[in-house]
Amino acid sequence: MENTPTPPKKRILVVEDDQFLRDLYEEILATAGFLVEKAVDGEDGYEMMKKGGYDLVLLDIMLPKMDGISILRKFHNEGPGLAPNKAVVILSNLGQESIIGEAINLGARGYMIKSDMTPEQALSEIRRYLSESF
């Protein structure tokens, strides 16, 4: 976990309403050498994603104010897609295939179920997504 990626550090946005999980992903990712920013609800997340510049956005589905699917749909409808960010990956505890399918159709790169992964597995998945987006 301590092998730091070569600079400049990759920027990751975590859109997560559960404080403990937000802290968890921040800790795991920061320890692994990434620059981590956090959004606590859907509106917050949408605004930060709009400004863009993230190498990866980890987006929850069930969020206060605006859900993850709505965020993806907004970007999808607004035209440039997810261009300001290199990749969006769903990080959620919802496992419904219909929702996963919808997220992928709206441009999400992948889907991770939080409870099914250890921190190590989550990190290696995230690294994989980061390497794929170049």
Binding site: L21, L24, I28, M62, S92, N93, L94, K114, S115, P119
Partner: peptide, 26 residues
């Protein structure tokens, strides 16, 4: 079911992950 799964899984993820971090701490 979907709400329950989501609500149950959030704290379970926290317990699982933080425990893992302690168990695997260097």
């Amino acid at each position: 079911i979907s709400v329950t799964s989501h609500e149950l899984r959030a704290p379970m993820t926290a317990i699982k992950s933080y425990t893992w971090l302690v168990l695997n701490s260097k």
